[in-house]
Every structure is written in structure tokens, then in C-alpha cells.
């Protein structure tokens, strides 16, 4: 009973503090929010992305899957690597709304190279 009352009190206080901090956002921040909103609303009047745009997520996932198969088969890895590619790496690549990560493939390649080199020095 006391535990439940404590939880309710915490919820009430947390909500009040949060609402207070929202109310007191400064003018510069509100202005930037307004700009962001206007930019978002402009999206409504842009021409449709068309059929290619509709397929972009599918092609993105297909590309990620292809890369996953290549990596698992070891076709692109010449140097033995200590840490195998983990399931979470693929989850990260395949997750919906994370497709922008694919843009960073070059960066991740560099990272892998850095890891490999680093492991080489240590080992």
C-alpha cells in the first residue's frame, strides 16, 4: 500500500517537474522548433517519391542482406578476424528506420579495418 502511494507520488512529482521544464523552454529553442515544424510541413507539398522511392526500403534491406551473406561467407574478408560478426550487427542494419545506417557503410568498413589492425597489434 505504502509502495503504491510512493509510486503515485513519484509519478505526480516527475510529471509536474517535467511539465514545468516544458513550460519554461526559452524563446530561441521555441523558434528553432517552429522552424523545424515549418520545414516538416513543407514535405506535404513536395511531389511524391514515386515508385523507386517506394521500393527504397526494400532495396535497402536486400542490400543489407546481401552484405550479410557476403560477410558470413567470408568472400570479402582476407584477414582473419577474432570477433565474428554478431547477430546484433545485422539487427542494427536490418531494423526499420535504421536504413540511414547503410549510408555509413564506408565508415563501418574503416572501423572494421581499424579493429583488425588494433587486434593485430595486441595479439
Amino acid at each position: 500500500m505504502t509502495e503504491s502511494r510512493d509510486s503515485e507520488r513519484l509519478e505526480r512529482q516527475a510529471k509536474a517537474l517535467f511539465d514545468d521544464s516544458v513550460e519554461r523552454l526559452d524563446g530561441a529553442t521555441l523558434s528553432r522548433l517552429n522552424q523545424g515544424r515549418q520545414k516538416a510541413l513543407e514535405e506535404l507539398h513536395k511531389p511524391g517519391v514515386g515508385n523507386w522511392g517506394r521500393w527504397a526500403p526494400v532495396t535497402g534491406v536486400a542490400a543489407a542482406a546481401a552484405i550479410a551473406v557476403m560477410v558470413m561467407n567470408g568472400t570479402t574478408v582476407d584477414v582473419p578476424v577474432d570477433d565474428p560478426v554478431t547477430v546484433s550487427d545485422f539487427e542494427m542494419l536490418l531494423e526499420t528506420d535504421s536504413l540511414e545506417m547503410l549510408e555509413d557503410l564506408e565508415f563501418f568498413s574503416l572501423l572494421d579495418a581499424v579493429d583488425t589492425e588494433s587486434n593485430g597489434h595486441v595479439g
Binding site: 522548433l33 522552424q35 523545424g36 515544424r37 520545414k39 516538416a40 510541413l41 514535405e43 506535404l44 528506420d97
Partner: peptide, 9 residues
């Protein structure tokens, strides 16, 4: 937040 609003719209 801006990115989310754009994706939403």
C-alpha cells in the same frame, strides 16, 4: 525532433 517531424509528414 525536426527529423521525426519530417519523417512523420
Amino acid at each position: 525532433v525536426q527529423d521525426s517531424m519530417i519523417k512523420m509528414a
